[in-house]
């Protein structure tokens, strides 16, 4: 009991020990890693390197790529639509991701309480994530946000005069963010699975010690959940940077109205597959890799101070 509580509380990372690798461990490690290594070298690495190469070429899909050096990259930063797509995506990441994660965690905690009907609620709250990937979502979601649709009606009740959000370039971003938040099912389920990993004894012991719900949340739930929080935070951030399907479906692939839903990867797709400029698209992709890579690295660096693994700290 005591050891676990200590693990759950913030502790410094284990000191790096200079060590010799045990041959049996090395063998086992690579044996267990074989499927991933095969997949990486057979399916993933080649196409990734190819796309990096293509970023320095003029490639129209139909004829051989021509080396152009850094041309694509210099063009990128003079392209107003590229800058627009970067701006749109940044707003989406900064606003949408935190809201979605907080909603997912809050609902997961609600659904983790001991009440009747939780199974039904879990299924209901996950339903949007099922529908969200359907092609029909464009029609459904727009119907919510057109003139006199449910959102407009509720908005008018509160004195909002935005009209239908779909056709209003100022309101499509909130609409897209709401669509993302509405689909909080995936991080919610992961949070739920994480909450189940928290040993109930910890809470019982804390109750004995007279801890209230807030203290339990801060002292037990958050630290024990930190690997899962880290996972959701990182993956949702990356996913938000790469958001494509919903914008593609809702805007019919155009990023409209007036460029207000021109997300980064949507513009990348338009460049690559509609304008046949796959070199340019690849350059865009690698700029994104660098940006998200830096952010990911920062996440991992800072995670050492707030993410605690019960299996690591010894």
């Amino acid at each position: 009991m005591t050891t676990l509580t200590r693990d759950a509380a913030p502790s410094s990372a284990p000191a790096k020990r200079a060590r010799r690798w045990k041959p049996s461990e090395v063998r086992a490690g690579y044996a267990f890693l074989t499927p991933w290594l095969l997949g990486f070298f057979l399916l993933t690495a080649g196409p990734m390197i190819a796309s990096l190469y293509l970023a320095f070429t003029d490639y129209n899909l139909f004829t051989d790529p021509q080396w152009v050096g850094f041309d694509n990259f210099t063009q990128l930063f003079q392209d107003p639509r590229f800058l627009q797509s970067a701006k749109v995506t940044a707003i989406y990441v900064l606003v949408g991701t935190p809201v979605k994660l907080v909603a997912a965690l809050a609902v997961a905690m609600l659904l983790n309480m001991k009440h009747r009907g939780q199974g039904a609620y879990r299924s209901i709250f996950y339903a949007p994530s099922l529908i969200g990937a359907s092609v029909s979502i464009a029609i459904v979601w727009k119907a919510m946000f057109i003139d006199d649709g449910i959102v407009d009606t509720v908005g008018q009740f509160f004195g909002m005069q935005a009209g239908g959000w779909v056709g209003n370039p100022d309101m499509t971003m909130p609409m897209m963010i709401l669509l993302a938040v509405w689909q909080f099912g995936a991080p919610m389920v992961i949070f739920l699975a994480g909450l189940k990993q928290v040993p109930a004894e910890l809470y019982e012991a804390a109750s004995v010690d007279g801890a209230g719900p807030v203290r339990k949340f801060l002292r037990i739930t958050l630290p024990m959940l930190s690997p899962v929080i880290f996972f959701n935070l990182l993956l949702e951030t990356i996913a938000a940077f790469q958001v494509f399907s919903s914008a593609f479906i809702i805007s019919g692939g155009s990023g409209g109205p007036a460029g207000s839903t021109l997300f980064y990867t949507l513009y990348l797709y338009i460049r690559g597959f509609n304008d046949f400029r796959m070199g340019y698209a690849s350059a865009m992709a690698w700029v994104l890799v660098i940006v998200v890579g830096v952010i990911t690295a920062i996440f991992f660096k800072t995670s050492k101070s707030w993410v605690h693994y019960s299996g690591d700290a010894r």
Binding site: P47, T57, D64, Q66
Partner: peptide, 21 residues
């Protein structure tokens, strides 16, 4: 296609991918 082949070789790309190209 020549340039791409040379480059991918130089990068030591996996056999399958070289084969593909």
């Amino acid at each position: 296609m020549k340039t791409r082949n040379k480059l991918t070789m130089a990068l030591g790309v996996t056999t399958v991918f070289a084969l593909a190209l």
